[in-house]
Amino acid sequence: MPRQPNPARRSERSRQAVLAAARELVTEVGYTKLTIESIAARAGVGKQTIYRWWPSKGAVVLDAFLALSETGPEAGIALPDTGDLEADLKAVMRATVAEFADPAFEAPIRALNTEIINDPALAEQYRLRLAGPVDEAKKSRLRSAQQAGQLAADADLDLALELLYAPLYQRWLLRSGPLTPEYADALVTLALKALRP
């Protein structure tokens, strides 16, 4: 008796092909020229397959970006906690700078930032599935530093994150200067001057 194909396995294979195609194409042609048709053609699936799983090309790109990380937000995120807040923050900021310099990460995240400006539903998914969990992990590390007396007890942790990350994002978004490990270190040093007890 012949074995029946497992539709779940076939679907997962198609899903992975779509995500890989979206990542490749957004890097090759940019978000503006990216279409559901081109993703479907590259992935070897029908357009209806894509629309069954995703409401828009922005949603495909979000999932493609999330799939780059094997330990995405769903798997739980933890920042280093060696007891040395400055060293831990510098390691995390340097890793962020490195990601933004990597075309595999940079192209999809730039595309997402472009799209969420005009798509409130995608913006909400981005907050729920990526930005929110990552920010919570960062605040957890900052809370640990507060408890250890390394940060002011009354420091607003949301504002602390903005002090650290907003300049980096602005420089990246506007392409106004190089994102280097030295720049990441300087941001940490300056932010901690404001946040220490």
Rank of each mutant, 00 (worst) to 15 (best):
P7S: 07
G132D: 09
L159R: 14
R94H: 12
D154N: 11
D63T: 04
Y31A: 08
S140G: 13
R3P: 12
A101E: 14
D156A: 10
A111P: 06
L130Q: 13
V188Y: 04
L85M: 04
A191N: 07
L163S: 13
Y51P: 01
Q125L: 10
S144N: 13
D63P: 03
E24A: 14
D185W: 00
L151I: 08
A41S: 14
G177I: 02
L62C: 03
K138S: 11
D81K: 14
Y183Q: 10
I50V: 11
R129C: 04
G76E: 02
R15I: 04
Q4D: 12
L66H: 05
L161W: 06
A123Q: 10
L159P: 00
P80S: 10
N6Y: 06
D158Y: 08
Q48G: 15
P181E: 15
D84F: 07
V60W: 00
A191L: 04
A21P: 01
E162F: 10
D185S: 15
L66Q: 13
R23P: 01
Q48D: 12
R94T: 15
A111I: 05
K90M: 12
L85F: 04
Q125Y: 00
Q125K: 10
Q170L: 15
G149L: 04
S14A: 14
A67P: 04
V45D: 00
D102E: 13
T32N: 11
A194E: 11
D102L: 03
W54G: 02
P178D: 15
A21I: 02
L89H: 05
A98P: 00
E70D: 13
A95P: 00
